[in-house]
């Protein structure tokens, strides 16, 4: 697999080995080492041999860049506010959980509930993602979370979505070839309970029965294409994809069917 380009010079960074005597460090120890380096003023960090350690990048803030070789565990970048994390490998569940701002680039696949409740920041994933991804992402003022997924997603994509942008490309990106994934690019219950934001799926059609409650499918306008273009361009830069391949096919957009889907659900009579 082609390695992800390092966004800084290796000699500017400190290296932390996540394995000691053939045993992976505990997440506590590894994260303490990261915090120690940041306390010393080191803002560029390379983590080698990461093997499932959780909570990497939890609650970090400011101009910090971390390049990870290996597979980080659950909750990568949870509550993060600003730093950029590059993973040269797959990642597990809940990447970018409740992230406020920052960037996460994954040179592989990620698990379930990626981007859970994120309020800002960007997550670029070369491969595919699991269930309930992009659940309850929201936007506020200048902050808007964006997820770009190169592969496909599973059921309940964008559930409860309240804002932000989720983009699914449906491509299998290998070192030398880029193939269209012709099978299902998304699971059912797509955008279930969506009441803000938009989902973009690179596909000809999204049949009604695949949509979740409160979601509807529409065509993109020229303005929509312009809105998603910068993130597609950025995605292509990370993973060495020619942008024109993406635009060979058009997208469908999933948006809330109503701003107040549950408005008439309640009764407030005095009893």
């Amino acid at each position: 697999m082609k390695a992800l380009e390092m966004p800084f010079k290796a000699d500017e960074a400190v290296r932390i080995n996540a394995i000691e005597n053939d045993t992976p460090l505990s997440y506590k120890k590894l994260n303490q080492l990261i915090h120690d380096e940041i306390e010393k003023g080191n803002k560029r960090i390379i983590l080698d041999n990461v093997a499932g350690q959780r909570f990497i990048g939890a609650a970090l803030h400011g101009d910090i860049k971390i390049y990870i070789n290996g597979v980080p565990g659950n909750d990568l970048g949870i509550f993060m506010d600003g730093p950029k994390i590059y993973v040269n490998g797959n990642s597990e569940d809940q990447v970018g959980n409740t992230m406020n701002s920052g960037k996460i680039v994954i040179n592989g696949n990620t698990g379930d509930v990626t981007g859970l409740s994120a309020r800002g920041g960007e997550i670029f994933i070369k491969g595919s993602v699991g269930y309930r991804v992009g659940i309850h992402v929201k936007e506020y003022k200048g902050k808007m979370p964006k997820l770009v997924i190169g592969g496909v997603c599973k059921e309940y994509f964008g559930e409860y979505m309240a804002g932000g942008m989720l983009i699914v490309l449906g491509l299998k990106i290998s070192d030398n070839t880029i193939e269209e994934i012709d099978d299902q690019k998304y699971g059912n219950c797509l955008g279930s309970g969506i009441h803000g934001g938009s989902i973009f799926i690179r596909t000809e059609d999204v049949p009604e029965h695949m949509l979740g409650i409160g979601a509807k499918v529409i065509d993109l306008t020229e303005k929509d294409n312009k809105r998603i273009q910068p993130y597609i361009e950025e995605f292509c830069t990370y993973f060495g994809v020619k942008e024109e391949i993406i635009w060979k096919k058009s997208f469908k957009k999933i948006v809330p069917a109503s701003k107040r889907p549950y408005g008439s659900n309640y009764c407030i009579d005095l009893v």
């Binding site: 909750d75 569940d93 809940q94 959980n97 509930v113 859970l116 309020r119 309930r132 659940i135 309850h136 929201k138 936007e139 506020y140 902050k143 559930e159 409860y160 309240a162 804002g163 309970g193 009441h195 803000g196 701003k259 107040r260 549950y262």
Partner: peptide, 21 residues
């Protein structure tokens, strides 16, 4: 409420029944 909850003015604030993590 919009500034404290960090959601746009006038938008519904839905708390899911379970935590999905």
């Amino acid at each position: 409420i919009s500034t404290t909850r960090m959601i746009p003015k006038g938008s519904d604030a839905l708390s899911p029944y379970p935590h999905h993590d």
